[in-house]
Nucleic acid binder design. Structure first.
Lengths: 164, 164
DNA sequence: CATGAAACCCCGAATTA
DNA sequence: TAATTCGGGGTTTCATG
């Protein structure tokens, strides 16, 4: 299930190709990396089993579904609440991301909403969690990069940097 | 290429299934939705052409590749620089997300790094952009939710909320 | 939207390097 | 240990109704 993956050049090519288009078939992937389809399938399975690839997702654009607003919500709250923030916001589907932080804020959420009124209703639900919760909301103007691919050149460059 | 999508129940089922597993074939999707494979293919193509689905991506776990650190970096800088922040951080591959914000901070980045030293080098590169740039770095402790799916129940609930 | 036919792809097993 | 070849069965795609 894990240990040291240690990817070779072809693994990286597969990884990058699947980040670009997760629906590519093994045959087509094999063409790109100069390998037979079964060989590709085995490598991909290894990447999945190692947890390097944890899934494949269609990227949907909330804007196209009427969610005109995206906002980042900085959240401060008591330790007890924050420890369970993940479970709590599970009931608020407009929260697409939830990360617990070390620092000034206890958590950072990414929220989508159809309108300002809708955003307000999401914030209300967040504030209703507990009296200790307070929020700072930042409207997203644009997202020049979202979920960029992890690449081999990126990894190589990092390995050449100062050690741990 | 666009206009009013207006999805029906089957479109939503397909959308949700593909967000869970983007590699599902049309035949298997058809089984889930009770539709023939060609019908599924046409619906999926429509969703793609409408921009509702903008792509399919393998989800890779930076941690499994040695990126032990994830951090959110709040960025403040002059208007001229911030307007081009997307292009600028394109050269810093450790920046996986970049969003421009309205509010206190001008942008919010998500960064991965192999070590504290590596993170430091990323911050150095960010500060070297321009003298007006300053950063606040928040280490991510955990991400209870990342890129949650957009669902039909979520969309339905929103439509029943107060109007615009 | 379903059906049917042709081409293609996937998968497992056996083989080879 | 890892990749290739090969055959059976399922899948995609395009035509048609």
């Amino acid at each position: 299930m894990e240990s040291k993956p240690e990817l070779d050049a072809k693994d990286w090519q597969l990884l990058e190709a699947l980040q670009r288009d997760a629906r590519l078939g093994y045959a087509e992937l094999g063409r790109k990396v100069k390998l037979s389809a079964p060989a590709v399938a085995e490598r991909v399975k290894r990447l999945e089993d190692a947890g390097v690839i944890s899934g494949y997702r269609a990227v949907v654009e909330p804007k196209r579904l009427g969610y005109r607003i995206e906002a980042m919500v900085r959240l401060r709250c008591d330790g007890g609440i924050c420890a369970r923030i993940g479970q709590i916001v599970a009931d608020i589907p407009e929260v697409l991301d939830c990360r617990r932080l070390a620092g000034e804020d206890s958590a950072l959420l990414r929220v989508v909403a159809m309108s300002i009124g809708h955003l307000e209703s999401v914030l209300d639900r967040l504030l209703k969690i507990h009296a200790s919760v307070s929020t700072t909301t930042l409207i997203v103007l644009q997202a020049p990069h979202a979920n960029r691919a992890v690449t081999r050149t990126m990894w190589d460059a990092a390995r050449k940097l100062p050690l741990d």
